[in-house]
Amino acid sequence: MSTLRVGTRASELARTQSGLIADAITARTGRETVLVPVSTEGDVSTAPLASLGGTGVFVSALRDALLAGEVDVAVHSLKDLPTAAADGIALAAVPEREDPRDAIIARDGLTLGELPVGSKVGTGSPRRVAQLEALGLGIELVGLRGNVDTRIGQVTSGKLDAVVLARAGLARLGRAGEITETIDPIQVLPAPGQGALAIECRASDTELVAALAAALDDPHTRAAVECERMVLAELEAGCSAPVGALAEVVEGEDGAELWIRAVASSLDGALSVRLSASGPYDDPIGLGRKLAAEMIADGAHTLLDRGTLDNPVLHPHPNTSGK
C-alpha cells in the first residue's frame, strides 16, 4: 500500500498532534505515513485572529492541499474548523479527546485567583477575555499571538504575569507540568471542540474514510463536539467569537445521555447568557439546536452583535506576536 501523506501545520504543537495521529494510523491500519507541512494564513500573519476573519484561518490551506491531491489526510485542532461542511471533504474521525479545559501558566506558581490586581495576563482569545473579565479579578488582559514557546516565554521573561492556554496542547507537548492552574469550566467554558482533533480526507476516498473511522473515531468525543459545534453554528458565531461550550457524556436514568453547558458573552464580559441542557446521546445535533434556541431567546444574538473585531478590553503588548 502507498504511504499516506498527512498534512499538518508547521508549528511544533501541530506537528506533535499530527505525529500522534500518523503513528496511530500506522499502528491501527498498517499504513505507513509521512508528515507534509502546509503553511496556513493563521501561521504567517501576526494580526489578531479575529481581524483575519477567525473562522478557517488555520484550516483552508490544509483543505486546499487535500483537494489538490498534495496530501491524503489533514489533521486539525477541531476548534479551528468552520461549522459549515466543506465540499469534497469528509470528517473521517474524531479521536478521543484530551482534557478540554483552559489552563494558566503564571509566575511564581500562582493561580488565577492569587494574581495581584493589575497583573498582566496574555491571551489572544475573545472568548477567554470575556469570561475572565466577568470574574472581576482586576487583571489586565493583553493581546497575545504566537506558538506555545513564545507565549510561555512572555511569563518567564517577566513581560507578563501569566498566560492562558489550552491544557490539551500543553499535555500533548509534554508541558502539563508547567501549568499552575487548570481553570474550572464554571469560571471559563472552553471553546467548542477544544481538546479534540479532526481527521479529514477527501470524501471520494471512501475506503480511507471508512478505515480511519474504524481505527480512530471515538463515538463519545464525536457526539460531544457535534453538540458543541451545533450551538456555535446556530448562534451564527465563528471560532473566534466569545462563545464557550462543553458537552459531556453522562449516565442518565435510561442509559448514556449528553449534558452541555454554553455561554455567549459581550466582548467586555459585562453581559452573558449561560445555559445548560441535557438530552439523548444519539441526538447531539438536536440537543445543540435546542440549547442554542434557548440562548437566542434569552438574547445571545444581541450580546454577540455588540462585539467588534477590535476588543476594547484586549490591549496589545509589545513583542507578543511572534509565530
Rank of each mutant, 00 (worst) to 15 (best):
A203H: 07
A93V: 06
R167W: 13
A223M: 10
G174Y: 11
E70S: 08
L81C: 12
D217I: 04
V117K: 14
I89T: 09
A300G: 02
A233W: 00
A168R: 08
R28V: 04
D254R: 13
R127T: 13
A237M: 10
V59D: 09
V75Y: 10
A223T: 10
A223R: 13
E70C: 00
C227W: 03
I179D: 01
E140D: 14
A270C: 03
A277K: 09
A245K: 05
V164M: 14
T123E: 08
D217Q: 04
A277F: 01
T55V: 05
G146R: 03
R127V: 06
G122M: 01
L132Y: 05
L304M: 07
T320K: 03
E257R: 14
I260W: 01
A237L: 09
D161S: 09
E181D: 11
A65N: 07
R9H: 08
Y281Q: 09
L197F: 09
G174A: 06
T150I: 11
A270F: 01
L275V: 09
A92F: 11
L67K: 07
L304I: 10
V231M: 07
D310V: 15
E226H: 12
N147Q: 13
E41W: 08
G307S: 15
S157A: 13
I186V: 14
L165D: 10
E70Q: 14
A47R: 15
A106L: 08
L91W: 05
V129S: 09
G244F: 09
A300I: 04
A203L: 14
L137S: 01
D23Y: 00
I199R: 00
P185Y: 05
S240A: 15
E114N: 00
Q17H: 02
I179A: 04
P284R: 09
N319H: 15
A134R: 14
A196Y: 08
A270N: 08
G169H: 03
G19L: 12
E248Y: 00
I152E: 12
A92N: 12
P312M: 07
S45F: 01
G19V: 10
S157E: 10
A92V: 11
S18H: 02
I105Q: 02
R289A: 14
K323C: 03
G136L: 00
P95N: 11
R229E: 08
V73A: 05
E253Y: 05
V263L: 13
R175H: 02
V225G: 03
D217V: 03
A247N: 04
L4R: 02
A198Q: 07
P48S: 05
E228Q: 07
T156D: 08
G7N: 10
A233L: 05
L258C: 07
G269W: 07
L165S: 03
Q131W: 11
D149H: 12
E114S: 11
L303V: 08
A210R: 12
A27K: 13
K323W: 13
A85Q: 15
E133A: 14
L258K: 04
A277E: 14
D161G: 13
T33G: 08
D184F: 11
D99Q: 09
T182K: 04
A61M: 01
T182E: 15
L112R: 06
A168S: 15
I25P: 11
G54T: 06
T221Y: 05
E32R: 15
